[in-house]
Design a protein around this nucleic acid. Structure first.
Lengths: 191, 191
DNA sequence: TCATCTGTCTAGCGGTGCTAGCATCTGGAG
DNA sequence: CTCCAGATGCTAGCACCGCTAGACAGATGA
């Protein structure tokens, strides 16, 4: 009885250990450094153990990404102000960009790597849904006639584009602030 | 004398063959299928031949990307209209998105994979510079007081975001047109 | 004709994700 | 207390990856 429970608890702990280690490793040395051998070594178990917890490496990345969505949602909710529309949007956008900058590997896992997470579907995991809802809640309040969902998607896309192009060196680091300001201006313009 | 020339010509042809084959293979089966072995097999030479033309696999991807920048620049220039601002911008944006949709693997090589292409620097290859200039030329004409470069970068980022998030299934295929319309509206709004 | 030199190939290195099959250790039955 | 069964984690190995050393053949020039 209690033995069974202890085992399940230990299994859950090890599951977490794998996810945390993968994330830490990815963040410090990049996802290329996250190999099954290295990961196994780091958690002090052999490779096959990983496969008793996850279907494969992709599933591990997906688990890390899921953790990211939860954290992002929390951050966005915290940044969702209720003041003047333009300022509220700015707070939200900055929170999003800060998150991406502070956790580049995590952000990659969430938005560029793991493709096997079902996004806009019925079986979409709760954290994903929650993340988008947090963004939506912040944007919706100044939609001002425009479709809130569409507006959110466009705003999100633009932010994502800025982040990903900047990171790859496609955009100069210098104009960063100017780009964000312009984007916010354009998004909050209502004709 | 002529022997020398013939050899150089043949070398150049094989160089092109490698790039074309890599691109075709990537486009039909994805970049994962483009392995050095597979590529060597496809061009009917052995692996080491690839390395007598390119420093490594990354360099091959970069060569494919470079080809893409040239083509994109041509497309954008062709789409740069001179009529009413909003319509001109729309034509440009649609040309960009169409290019990305028709050549997904090529687009990936240009904007998400190859990191060793110097973008905003002094030694930036001409095709890259040209591509951005084509976009700039189209956007600048309706900047209307705003910084043309910044505006171009923001517009580009937003388009890129839409494309890349749509492709990964992060954005529903349904709202595509609505998102583009809203984006164009916001970008062409001058306060 | 022969030496050299260029070009291409075979074979192999160290790495990857993943798995089959064998030990070992534990928990419960007799 | 003993012994068996099942769970658990390991070693070893598969097929593949990018990349390269060294052997080999054919063309080139003296």
């Amino acid at each position: 009885m209690s033995t069974q429970q202890r085992r399940e608890r230990e299994r859950a702990q090890r599951h977490d250990l794998i996810v945390k280690t993968a994330r830490k490793l990815a963040e410090s040395e990049g996802w290329d450094a996250v190999t099954t051998r290295r990961l196994a070594d780091e958690i002090e178990y052999s490779q096959p153990v990983l496969y008793s917890h996850f279907a494969g490496k992709d599933a591990i990345v997906a688990a890390v990404a899921l953790e990211g969505f939860t954290e992002l949602a929390v951050r966005l909710r915290a940044a969702t102000g209720t003041g003047e529309p333009r300022a509220a949007l700015e707070g939200l956008a900055r929170a999003y960009m800060t998150f991406a900058e502070e956790n580049p590997a995590l952000y990659d896992a969430m938005f560029t790597m793991a493709v096997d997470l079902p996004f806009g579907q019925d079986d979409t995991p709760e954290p994903l849904r929650d993340g988008f809802q947090a963004l939506l809640a912040g944007v919706a309040q100044f939609a001002d006639g425009r479709d809130p969902a569409i507006l959110t998607e466009v705003a999100w896309s633009a932010l994502h584009g800025l982040i990903v192009l900047s990171r790859g060196g496609r955009l100069p680091a210098s104009g960063r602030e100017a780009r964000l300001t312009l984007l916010l201006d354009q998004l909050s313009a209502t004709r």
